[in-house]
Write a protein that binds this DNA or RNA. Sequence first.
DNA 1: TGTTAGCACTCGCGTGGCGAGAGTGCTAAC
DNA 2: GTTAGCACTCTCGCCACGCGAGTGCTAACA
Lengths: 358, 358
Amino acid sequence: MKLGERKKEILRAVIDSYITTAEPVGSKALVSGMGMRLSAATVRNEMAELESMGFLEQPHTSAGRIPTPSGYRVYVNELMREHKLSIDEMNTVNRAMRKRILELDRLLDNTGRLVSRLTSYPAYALTASSGAATISRYDFIGVDANTFIVIAMLGSDTVKNKLIHSPVQVHPEFLTRLSALFNANFTGVPEESITQSLISATERASGDTCGVVAVVAEFSVELLMAAKLMQSHVSGALNLFDFPEYRDIGKARRVIGYLSDEGRPARLPAPARDNGVTITIGPENLAEELRDSSVVVARCDAGTDMQVMVGVVGPTRMDYSKVTSRLEYITRVLGWLLSPGGEAGDKQLKGDDGIEHS
Amino acid sequence: MKLGERKKEILRAVIDSYITTAEPVGSKALVSGMGMRLSAATVRNEMAELESMGFLEQPHTSAGRIPTPSGYRVYVNELMREHKLSIDEMNTVNRAMRKRILELDRLLDNTGRLVSRLTSYPAYALTASSGAATISRYDFIGVDANTFIVIAMLGSDTVKNKLIHSPVQVHPEFLTRLSALFNANFTGVPEESITQSLISATERASGDTCGVVAVVAEFSVELLMAAKLMQSHVSGALNLFDFPEYRDIGKARRVIGYLSDEGRPARLPAPARDNGVTITIGPENLAEELRDSSVVVARCDAGTDMQVMVGVVGPTRMDYSKVTSRLEYITRVLGWLLSPGGEAGDKQLKGDDGIEHS
DNA sequence: TGTTAGCACTCGCGTGGCGAGAGTGCTAAC
DNA sequence: GTTAGCACTCTCGCCACGCGAGTGCTAACA
């Protein structure tokens, strides 16, 4: 099913126009709007053929044409013009990302916000890791007689803390003992290894009689579960309402609900390799809720067993070109920041001149 | 403007019915639906009078009546029947709150979620503190040669951490020096006292040549700003779409946008005293964006100079009675948890039998 | 005097017909 | 292979119409 040069041009013009206006585009509008050197009648014939090939369709007889999902498919695969980021936009990204945020989840949150601001579509960011997450170290800090802080580091990029009151006094030596025990027995183990018997043993060994050990263990399990759940950070959800295709509240609701619902992100599309971008158009989506939306998602790898996905959802007539280029740039920057020598990436952005030094 | 007993009963019946159906209620529907022992004609006369008093209005001639804001006002002030929480609901609250979360912002987040689940309206939670927030202690933990964690405690209930990579090696002695300097000079001071000259002095005193001090100082400022901003945690925003009055997307958007927008919460209503509940109906709201929504907000005090506000927004025909009772109960529990001897509150909930032991 | 039944009236809402406009497909000419 | 012309189709906005819910008024009743 090879398309002739002229058909390609017309298909591209139709999609470009539909992307910006959301109105079915007719032959007349096409020749006048675009700088077409063909007559409307010829364009009509071509459009009729594109329709029979399944790339265009008419909402009803005697209306203009709109692209079908397969139409968008060939558009993103071969027709789409590459969109360049302006210097301004690059600077925005660089400035936003240069804040040296090292904690993964805060970083993802920020990235999502940035993406949704830059694309004006709702955005999400989430991590997937092939290996099970484990806690790499514990620290205990006494605050006052009854209060202490436990700090747990997850892998090499996430630090979480919790403030704990104890019904009885906590002595510094008790905290030292806790620290030794947790660092010896709770680090490097997956969530399911934190069993009741391990907790009881630790309670005995530390001399804890009032459940402090249990609280710390519960906190640890919570962290490990959260890491496994691939929580997604959604931002700019309200942007969805700017698009006429989501005037229908139910539709918008389902999409936003789906994205925010934890656990669900499992069924979002994901690119196969580092720096890859995947575009999933309407019915290509696995999730029922996204069947009439499109998803563009970029991946960047951090270390050997963790991947970050940054994605955007919108109507099928999404501006694929603009979104793709921005996602690509942002995940590239994210990759620099997350690469083992994170500071190297940091240096890349120092310039603030928008010129890419890679 | 004293209302007769019968007028009160009719006004209450109209509002009760309108709250559940969102349809204008006519005289006939009233006498048949409710167990009225009066005839429709009499009710009609009374309703006409209530209308001339400004408590009811007709969307158009020959439609039923709907309550006006002043109608709701007298309803909440004197007509509303007290709603009792069921044992089940109390248990839900107790179980959800009993998790011993001590960090304020996580607690607020959870509370908001709980409220929106229990009321089916969007909920928000935020803190206001009369005194300026300050950092009460710093801790520095070395992770590896180039990496360390800084932990800052805000007041007595918030702990935040940040992972920092340094371009040069950080020695344990350097961290000790940082700790001493920050605990001496950065604790107990408001955000505006963290000046460039203080930072420079600290850099010199610590021997920092690569901006690590600046990063920690910036982190501190960020925390203090966030504490001052009264960030609000909004949950269940999507619930708004269940109400026909928010079918109009623009309206729903404005309300949700207003709540989520940081900084804005300043203009939300707030009760004057601990455990108080304030109901603000439609045009009574200061914020333009809330002029046709109602807000119910409960306050509970934690310590001497911090207040927590938990609120709910919805259409003016909100179920004030249900919402008020739930907010009251939840903030009471929150108050126990936040009271200086937080564990006392914890004990109140131990029973899980829903019986209130206070 | 307060309450009730009856009745004419009002007005929003949903339905159906109508005309305008946009866009198409087909055919014939270039 | 391309273009101009023309009849046809279908949506959308507009308007008139009738239904029904609900009212206000009046007169009769306890």
